[in-house]
């Protein structure tokens, strides 16, 4: 797959259709791959990677990139295409300046899950579909693939690309991975249990802002948390409880716009299941206003920010909410 992607990228560069490519390159360690811009065939040959570890969503980078001169080639996994559509919807990217190649995606591997098994000094990973063979500085180790799959891939929405200009490989189907089951478990808790759960999770937060910075729905020109005039910036840092509110405010902020790409939880250094807050909103929207998937179409209108005559009365929403 990686070879096919490099080949096509080189062709598009050579034809002058695009003048740069956004993809992934290897970071400091074998298991960290990071988004990167490639401008020449040489750079592509040398650095471009696409494998089990290239999990990051490239869509958010296109906000800035699509405003630069010339067209950019973006390789997007199925879940990344939802983010791009949502950004198109919000006029945050200039879609005409992006050439999207949809690429197939198998569940990504979470190096943290491998490390959690006590495996360290990772040099490389081989995946035969059932088992992972991990090459480390201490020798070879192995573990079942199923135990190393990235959290966000366990609740995969499917392998269908919702926007692309061309595809490498076949387009897949939508799938139901029961992604709302965990939310239902939380809902089944008593208020006190739920409060305790979130307090214990959110109190781990170190306010590194990684979740916000990676989130493709967090694209404000000036974030309220960075804006002194908003009157919120300091409040959210006042005490540990207010600190927790940061995530709640952020979840409200992206409600109806979050495509459930799972990047927030992926990048969280404290492993807080942040995506569960957003997924609760998605579940609520589905139940109160009818099924809605943000980013499904480049012109979809979120039920939370639209006004139609068919909207039900607030009292009905309230009734449904208490059912």
């Amino acid at each position: 797959m990686q070879e096919a992607m490099i080949k096509r990228a080189k062709e598009l560069l050579a034809e002058g259709i695009v003048n740069r490519v956004i993809g992934w390159k290897r970071g400091e360690f074998a298991y960290d791959s990071t988004p990167a811009i490639f401008e020449t065939p040489e750079e592509l040959e040398r650095d471009f990677v696409y494998d089990d570890l290239t999990a990051s969503n490239l869509s958010k980078y296109l906000i800035k990139e699509s405003r630069k001169a010339g067209k950019i080639l973006a390789f997007l996994k199925p879940c990344d295409t939802y983010s791009l559509n949502q950004l198109t919807c919000e006029h945050r990217v200039i879609r005409e300046n992006i050439h999207v190649i949809g690429i197939p995606c198998d569940p990504k591997i979470d190096a943290e899950k491998i490390k959690a098994k006590g495996i360290s000094g990772i040099l490389g990973i081989k995946n035969d579909g059932v088992d992972l063979t991990i090459d480390t500085i201490y020798g070879k180790e192995s573990m079942p693939v199923s135990e190393a799959i990235m959290e966000k891939c366990l609740s995969c929405k499917g392998k269908k690309h919702v926007t692309y200009d061309e595809l490498i490989g076949e387009d897949g189907e939508l799938c139901d991975s029961g992604r709302f089951d965990m939310v239902a478990e939380l809902e089944a808790m008593t208020a006190q249990e739920r409060y305790d759960f979130w307090r214990s999770q959110l109190s781990k937060c170190i306010r590194c802002n990684a979740c916000r910075n990676v989130c493709p729905a967090c694209t404000c020109e000036k974030c309220v948390f960075d804006n002194d005039a908003s009157g919120i910036a300091n409040k959210a840092a006042a005490d540990s409880f207010e600190e927790n509110m940061f995530h709640i405010i952020r979840a409200f902020h992206v409600a109806g716009r979050c495509t459930d790409c799972g990047e927030c939880s992926r990048v969280c250094p404290q492993n807080i299941p942040l995506h569960m807050l957003n997924r609760k909103f998605i579940k609520d929207i589905n139940e109160l206003y009818g099924t809605y998937q943000a980013g499904e179409k480049p012109d979809s209108v979120s039920p939370l920010t639209s006004y139609t005559l068919d909207d039900c009365e607030a009292s009905i929403v309230h009734e449904r909410g208490t059912e």
């Binding site: 919000e90 006029h91 945050r92 694209t219 020109e221 000036k222 804006n227 639209s306 006004y307």
Partner: peptide
């Protein structure tokens, strides 16, 4: 205008069609 993202959320909820971009 310095804070506006141009995302059209306001335009979509405006019942009077008062917002343009």
């Amino acid at each position: 205008e310095l804070m506006c993202n141009g995302c059209s959320s306001c335009e979509k909820v405006c019942p009077y069609g008062a917002i343009t971009y």
